[in-house]
Simulated scan of single mutants.
Amino acid sequence: MGGSSNLNMLVVSFCESIKEDPSLSEFFGNFAFKDLSVLEEELLMAALVEPEGENEIQSRRSRVALRHYQLFQSGLNERHFDVLSKHLKFALEESWVSEDVIQDCERHFASLRPIFEHA
């Protein structure tokens, strides 16, 4: 997908899209953009960066669950994850990523959905 500058652009686009979505405002509306960027970059890294082993996969998922815990307590769930997934696709398209890479990213991102189920 590219280097760190491409990832930074993706995170910014992803977060801007999230901040503009009224259906997510109760969860992310009060976040400062910098704080939201840190939170969502961690989510994207957990999904899109190749782990070095099974332990790292579990560690990343646990970190995502822990960082989103208060949001889960406020009602963030798998329906909202699906909305986040749409925002990711939009951010990828806006970054001129090819369709095959978008599909790979969506598949990897979807692997995090169970964290948001029954949260």
Rank of each mutant, 00 (worst) to 15 (best):
L112Q: 11
P51G: 12
L39W: 02
N30E: 15
L43E: 00
H87L: 03
D100M: 05
N30I: 07
N8V: 11
F28D: 00
V12H: 12
S13F: 09
G53Y: 03
S85E: 09
V97S: 01
L71T: 03
Q103K: 06
L43K: 00
R67K: 14
H87K: 05
M1D: 11
V49E: 10
Q58Y: 10
L112P: 06
I102C: 02
F81D: 00
F109N: 02
D100W: 09
C105R: 05
F27C: 02
I57G: 12
A32E: 15
L7C: 07
F81N: 01
E42D: 14
K19L: 15
I18M: 08
E26D: 15
V11I: 08
E41A: 13
P22K: 05
G29E: 09
A110S: 15
F14W: 05
Q58L: 14
E99V: 09
N8H: 15
R63L: 09
S17C: 09
A91W: 00
E50W: 00
P51F: 02
V97K: 02
L84A: 01
R61S: 01
G2L: 07
V64D: 03
V38K: 14
L71N: 08
L48G: 02
S4I: 14
F81G: 07
K34M: 14
S37R: 14
F31G: 08
L43H: 00
L44W: 10
N77F: 07
G75I: 01
E99L: 08
F33G: 12
F31L: 07
S5Q: 14
L24D: 05
F81T: 01
L84Y: 04
F72L: 09
S59N: 10
I18Q: 06
R107V: 06
G75M: 00
D82L: 08
G29A: 11
K19Q: 15
A46G: 12
D35N: 15
H87G: 06
